[in-house]
């Protein structure tokens, strides 16, 4: 293969690549440190992400198009079937909803008796997923709503079955979401049957969270439903998270090893909504 004459380097020609490498390594280390410490790189990142959005969109175009086509070309029979199923579900849900008005009124009356009010009002914002992280040990997704649509960092995100994660980074037109199954994620929870509060940690496995702070004499059982406790203020209170899939006593340990399987199907996420929490005006 012919060597390009332009790239032939003379023996005594100065070459700065080593200095450049050192400079770049230092710069990267500073950036990484800032990123772990929530420094000013957050702002830089937000603005740089605007350039990333079209690339993410374009890279995910083939997959999204194929899925769209599959949906469009799916058979008529199956669509009719689905529509029938949805109608049934709708009727069921509506009949359950009728009770809600009564419960709502009752709830408000009780709050008045207690002299306190629920302080938060919630908004739901529907969003679509444009990308999932391709890195195996990172459980993140990107949705198509960003700060221009009113999404804030820290907002919780749920799908029809339960909580899936929260917004960690704003990309102006889109936002990044850390799923509850990520290794770096922890969510404050409450076990409904016993009222115990704990923190569920992600395990890196899509179908398993871990609870490590429940004592041995607890009456937790397999199948108990777990909801968000609202402590810490990041996740709203009372949203379903999952159910307990395994309770294990380890010899010599003071605490139970409890596994939790999330209700939300984190592998295949379709429709999601961002739960925006607003502090009411009279506060």
């Amino acid at each position: 293969m012919a060597i390009n004459p332009g790239q032939r380097i003379h023996r005594y020609e100065k070459n700065y690549s080593s200095y450049r490498l050192i400079f770049v390594i230092i710069l990267s280390c500073v950036l990484m440190y800032q990123d772990t410490q929530d420094g000013y790189s957050k702002t830089i990142r937000t603005y740089l992400s605007v350039f990333a959005y079209p690339i993410t969109y374009a890279a995910n175009l083939p997959k999204n198009t194929i899925e769209g086509l599959r949906l469009r070309l799916s058979e008529r029979a199956s669509i009719i079937d689905e529509s029938k199923k949805l109608k049934e579900e709708n009727i069921l849900l509506k009949s359950q909803l009728q009770e809600i008005y009564k419960l709502d009124a009752e709830n408000r009356r009780l709050y008045e008796l207690l002299g306190s009010y629920p302080d938060k009002k919630r908004n739901f914002l529907f969003a679509d997923i444009i990308a999932t992280s391709s890195v195996p040990d990172r459980r993140q997704i990107i949705i198509n709503k960003g700060s221009t649509d009113g999404v804030n960092i820290g907002d919780a995100v749920a799908d029809p079955n339960g909580i899936i994660g929260h917004v960690i980074r704003d990309q102006v037109f889109s936002s990044e979401i850390l799923l509850i199954s990520d290794l770096e994620h922890a969510i404050p929870i409450e076990i409904t049957s016993t009222g115990e509060r704990a923190i569920a940690y992600g395990s890196g496995d899509m179908n398993r969270l871990e609870i490590r702070s429940i004592s041995l004499n607890s009456k937790v059982q397999k199948g108990d439903v777990v909801i968000t406790s609202g402590l810490g203020g990041r996740y709203p209170e009372g949203f379903p998270v999952g159910e307990i899939s395994r309770v294990k006593k380890i010899e010599g340990e003071n605490l139970l090893a409890i596994d939790l399987s999330p209700f939300a199907n984190l592998d295949v996420i379709n429709e999601i909504w961002v739960i925006q929490t607003e502090v009411s005006k009279d506060e």
Binding site: L21, V24, S28, C29, M32, A52, T56, V135, R138, E176
Partner: peptide
């Protein structure tokens, strides 16, 4: 750096690796 932004990782990780 662009790759880091796209993959949502630590800002500078891929940048460092690729420059080395």
């Amino acid at each position: 750096l662009l790759l880091d932004l796209l993959q949502g990782g630590l800002l500078g990780e891929n940048a460092l690796i690729l420059s080395v």
